[in-house]
Amino acid sequence: MSGPERKAPDDKLLEDFLEGRSPASRAWREARHGESAPPELDDKILGMAREEIQAAAARPPSRDRFRDRRWPFALAAVLVLSFSTLLTILQDPVAHKDAMMVAPDVAPADAVVLPEAAAPVAADEVQERRMQAIEAERQSMQAKRRMEERPAKPSAAPAAAAEAPGSGSYADAMHEPAAAGGEAEAPSAPAPAAAPAAPPPAPAPVMEESREATPAKLQAAPAAEMRRRALTADYLGAAKLKGESAEPGAALVELERIRRMLAEGREDEARRALQTWRQDWPERPVPADLQRLLD
């Protein structure tokens, strides 16, 4: 008969063993008597522990050091990245324009087609160009209104040009891209011959703001040179609006040469060179500042 309090032999054996009453435990205690770790290991291990603890005390915990400094590091990284990005945008006109979210049709005349046209201009000239752009816009609206009044007559545009000097070729410029299906170029446009020094309206303020931000460059460039560059840029913008390729090439180089002749007082030579230029590139309009040589 086995009651619940009576344990199985194995359990009794285990219980005795766990309480240290087992013969196996006694035998083991006798067997291990005198058996200990070699003394030479004591010095070795204690010496190793001493060195390790001293070395650990000498150096600060690296993980905590990083934790303490991670926020300043992150802040510094953000500031450096922001500053470099801002600097890139301010120094690169194209990136600046993109950052200001200006429409892409304003780029060619000043920034893309003729890189040297992006040179800084004086603040008063900036103001002047703004006024010219406003005036050109006003004239273009008038021309457009006239064309709408006489839509059936194909010669209406030249007639309008005759009636309103300075706006007629701009009317042509409005007309031709529309016929060619060029929507992007239609809204802006000074004519090269009739609207002297009239820049494409939209880009001018944005680009000029970036120029105003670099006063050192403003002082560095001579006014005449800047003026000539502005005229060239205007001319290129007008040529583009006329549907021509606005690439800076031999025609532009020749025009620059003619301007230099004028500046040096060799007017006859410049006039002859301009006539030759017109024969070589009959499709190109004569820049406004050289119109007087044709008279």
Partner: peptide
């Protein structure tokens, strides 16, 4: 653990039966 100890003790007792009544 209990099972392992039971087997170990049973084996020890068997081998040391003359000194382990």
């Amino acid at each position: 653990v209990k099972s392992r100890l039971r087997y170990a003790l049973a084996k020890l007792r068997q081998e040391l039966s003359d000194v382990w009544p």
